[in-house]
């Protein structure tokens, strides 16, 4: 075959390692990783970005990105990112966290990083369940949703209501850019990429803390097929967690 006659039309972003991912079929984490990789490439910041992988399904994220990475303990990614950013204020630092990691065990760390206006970017993947440990209730689990630890469905009486992270963080003065997006169809995936790109640019401009909440799926623990999972997200999660921009610095659209 004559290689020189072939033109590459798609491939892995340069800032990704190209290793096979372990995510389940129908899980959108692989897509979200790729969007981050594309953004890093487009902003040409591969050699100046340090990522923090969480505990949870994305624990191996450090294998999938071809950039400097640190693996954090459960919930502490914003604290680890703070340590790195304070040492290297000129570098780009992002955390990648799930809903158990960020909204349960790491609530203190995310609130205080946001409140300090820590100049980091957080990609917060919300799929309303603990994936890695096998489908337990998350703080973002919907009312009535059955999980391993809410076998009769989540009741607000017993375990409160789904935690609205973006709404909450957007009240803090240090939060520069807080946005919720979804991954259930192409249009929304494109919006997700734009949001991630803006969140990186907000950091680049030193405007403060930026967080992109990305609604995602968990077909395995939801007990659904990939297609059903996308539909379930759209039908059940979107009304509870409406995608929108919660706060943004002036002129963010020009970024």
């Amino acid at each position: 075959m004559k290689q020189d006659k072939l033109k590459e039309v798609a491939g892995y972003p340069d800032s990704m390692s190209g290793r096979d991912m372990h995510y389940c079929p129908g899980c959108t984490q692989g897509i979200i990783h790729r969007l981050i990789g594309e953004v890093i490439d487009e902003l040409k910041i591969k050699e100046e970005t340090i990522g923090i992988a969480p505990v949870g399904c994305a624990v191996l994220a450090y294998d999938y990105f071809d950039i400097d990475m640190q693996e954090a303990s459960h919930g502490r990614a914003p604290a680890v990112a703070t340590g790195i950013k304070r040492v290297h204020p000129d570098k780009m630092v992002f955390t990648y966290q799930g809903d158990g990691d960020l909204a349960s065990i790491g609530t203190a760390e995310i609130i205080h990083a946001a409140n300090r206006g820590e100049k980091i970017t957080t990609v917060f993947v919300n799929n309303a369940i603990y994936g890695m440990t096998g489908g337990q209730m998350a703080p973002t689990t919907l009312l009535g949703q059955k999980t391993k630890t809410t076998p009769r469905g989540r009741s607000s009486e017993e375990t409160g209501n789904p935690l609205k992270v973006s709404e909450m963080l957007s009240m803090l003065d240090g939060a520069a850019y807080i946005v919720r997006v979804s991954t259930h169809d192409l249009e929304n995936i494109n919006k997700t990429k734009q949001a991630i790109k803006k969140a990186f640019k907000v950091q680049q401009q030193g405007l403060g803390f930026a967080l992109v909440e990305v609604l995602s799926t968990c077909p395995t623990n939801w007990g659904l097929s990939p297609r059903q999972a996308m539909e379930w997200l759209e039908k059940n999660m979107i009304p509870e967690f409406p995608p929108r921009v919660f706060c943004a610095p002036e002129g963010v659209d020009e970024l």
Binding site: I52, S73, T82, G83, R86, A108, E109
Partner: peptide, 20 residues
């Protein structure tokens, strides 16, 4: 930096030490 807790403080140390 005064951290929000000792847990956060030790993880900030982890980040900064890892950053060299």
């Amino acid at each position: 930096l005064q951290a929000e807790s000792e847990v956060a403080a030790s993880n900030m140390v982890y980040g900064a030490a890892g950053a060299g």
